[in-house]
Amino acid sequence: MIRVVLADDEAMIRAGIKAVLSADPGIEVVAEAADGREAVEQVRAHRPDIALLDVRMPRLDGLSAAAVLRASMPEVGVVMLTTFDEDDYVAGALEAGAGGFLLKAADPRELIFGLRAVAEGGAYMSPRIARKVITRLTGGHLSRTAAARAQVDMLTPRERDVLTLVGRGLANQDIARELFLSEGTVKAHVSAILLRLGLTNRVQAAIIAYEAGLVHPYG
């Protein structure tokens, strides 16, 4: 069970996010907060797995709260949630040690994937944000191969295995047989890959697999 402290200064936003999280049987919202200071207090009181923080909050903003939490309770994963994707916020979140950065306008499934990734010790960024970060860090000069590899690096090892076989043109049934998984599990992995990489179909996923070097044209 992933235990979450949810912090957002807008009650309706909190209610909506809590409804999304509560629909997943593996996630529990153990406390809520309306500002950054209260968020820090609730995290200290409940010791959750994840602190889900809005960037803009009164008294103490989300980035400052994240920095406090990472310094005093590094075992707690921090995920930033915002309606904005300006570079300053992304950079600030990274500097504060956040493991995830998600947009409120994103698909609700992305929120679940992001929390699970951070709870498992990984990192997650909305694809829209990840592309901006990659562009910024490279000054806009990035080959298609390097860009594809940077995207693939966001996947779990099992997702990379599935993506490789998608790139080879295998159907879900064949992938399941190859990796000793159920077909339903493969479908879930494919959906997660498309969502994480900001893709809409398997053809785009296959292209990423080729560009990242997971699949080669001649064997």
Rank of each mutant, 00 (worst) to 15 (best):
T82D: 11
A209L: 04
I175C: 14
L170I: 13
R59M: 08
N201S: 15
R168T: 03
G77Q: 09
T200R: 13
E178A: 14
S143T: 14
A7T: 07
L115Y: 02
I50R: 00
V78P: 00
I50H: 00
K132R: 12
A176M: 14
S182E: 13
A171G: 15
L170Q: 15
F84P: 01
D8R: 02
L179E: 11
Q173V: 15
V166K: 05
A65V: 08
F180A: 14
T145E: 14
E183H: 09
E211Y: 06
L21N: 00
A105K: 09
G184V: 10
A192G: 13
A33T: 06
H46K: 13
D9A: 07
I134D: 04
L52P: 01
E38N: 12
H46V: 03
R177Y: 11
A93T: 11
S182Q: 09
E28F: 07
L115A: 02
G121P: 01
A11C: 05
V118K: 01
R44I: 03
A150G: 12
V40T: 01
A212V: 05
N201F: 08
L137P: 01
L155R: 01
V190R: 14
M154T: 15
L53M: 12
A7S: 10
V162D: 03
D24Y: 04
A123G: 07
H141I: 13
I134Q: 02
T145Q: 15
G26V: 09
A130T: 03
E95T: 13
L179F: 10
E178P: 09
V90S: 01
A148W: 01
I175Y: 07
L69G: 05
K132L: 08
V118S: 04
D161W: 01
L195Y: 02
E41L: 13
L170Y: 13
D85W: 11
K187Y: 07
Y218Q: 03
A176F: 11
